[in-house]
Amino acid sequence: MARAGVTPERLAWAAAELADEVGFDNVTASAVARGFGVTVASLYAHVANAHDLRVRVALLALEELADRVGDAVTGRAGKDALVAFGNAYRAYAQQHPGRYAAARLRLDPETAARSAGPRHSAMARAILRGYGVPDEEQNHAVRLLGSTFHGFVSLEASGGFEHSGDPETSWTRALDALDVALRNWPSPSA
């Protein structure tokens, strides 16, 4: 029998909160069950298994991040949109490190297709169209944006910039460099 107040959505939310506190890799079904005062077996009345719980956290994080980025870029174009996108992405990673890690979880193709992942791609492609990046080059440019954003926030989160000071200026320079690269996107090789 299902325990009152326990739902798959509430479990995902609780696991996401826990991920921000202890790290996504340290979220366990038993810790989430303890938080609800239920047994792990009872938890599995609402989610299929620990992997299902992790996927639900990833989907929640992707949705939250897409909402933030969407709000940030609405009504903006060019460098303003690029900076808003990057800043929203970085702020989310800083404010929700566990959820951000969850958003990086590899999803099966069917789950990925129904996630907010395609919204992320569509927003990035809208920015790229504003720069005139040709359709056939957009996959490469989306990967450049994702690699830069993820690389920077991952290094920053792991303390990689603590020894050299002022990551804010480095972040601004990275966004400036992306703007230049997108404005001067090379023609496809023959």
Rank of each mutant, 00 (worst) to 15 (best):
S170D: 10
S158A: 12
E17W: 07
A66Y: 10
Y131L: 09
P186R: 03
V38D: 08
T172Q: 15
H140T: 12
V133Y: 02
N26M: 09
R119Q: 11
V55T: 09
A81W: 01
D176G: 11
A91N: 09
D80L: 13
E162K: 11
A157W: 01
S30W: 04
T7L: 08
D135M: 06
H96D: 11
E63N: 07
E21F: 00
A45M: 05
A4D: 03
A61N: 05
V69I: 15
G23S: 09
Q95E: 15
V73M: 12
D176A: 11
V27L: 15
E64L: 09
L62C: 06
V40Q: 14
D67P: 02
N184Q: 08
Q94C: 11
A102H: 11
R3K: 14
Y100E: 03
N49W: 06
A174K: 11
D176C: 12
G146I: 05
G70S: 10
F24K: 01
T148Y: 00
H46D: 13
S154I: 04
S189C: 08
A66D: 08
R99W: 06
A31G: 14
A81M: 01
R119T: 12
D25N: 13
L43K: 01
R119K: 08
L107V: 10
V47C: 01
G5N: 05
R183N: 14
L62F: 04
V40I: 10
F152R: 02
E17A: 15
L155P: 00
T28K: 05
V133M: 01
A103P: 02
N184D: 13
P188N: 03
G132H: 09
R3L: 10
A84K: 04
H150P: 02
G151C: 12
W171M: 08
N49A: 04
Y92R: 01
H96V: 04
Y92S: 04
V83E: 07
P109H: 13
D67K: 12
G75S: 15
R3D: 05
Y131V: 03
N139V: 12
G75M: 09
L43Q: 04
R56H: 11
A41Q: 13
R129G: 02
E168G: 13
A31F: 08
S158F: 03
E63W: 06
G165A: 07
A15Y: 03
D25E: 15
G146V: 11
A190H: 06
A88G: 15
G117D: 14
P109L: 12
Q138T: 03
S147P: 04
Y100W: 14
A91Y: 07
H46I: 06
R34A: 11
F161L: 14
R173L: 12
Y89E: 12
A101L: 08
L65I: 09
E136S: 05
S189P: 11
D176R: 10
L178S: 05
F149G: 00
D108L: 02
L62V: 04
A102F: 03
P167L: 07
F161T: 10
E136G: 05
P109M: 10
Q138I: 02
R143Y: 10
A29S: 15
A45D: 09
V40P: 01
R56Q: 09
R90D: 09
V22W: 02
G35F: 08
G75A: 10
W171D: 09
L82C: 09
A15P: 13
E64P: 02
S170P: 06
T148K: 07
D108Q: 15
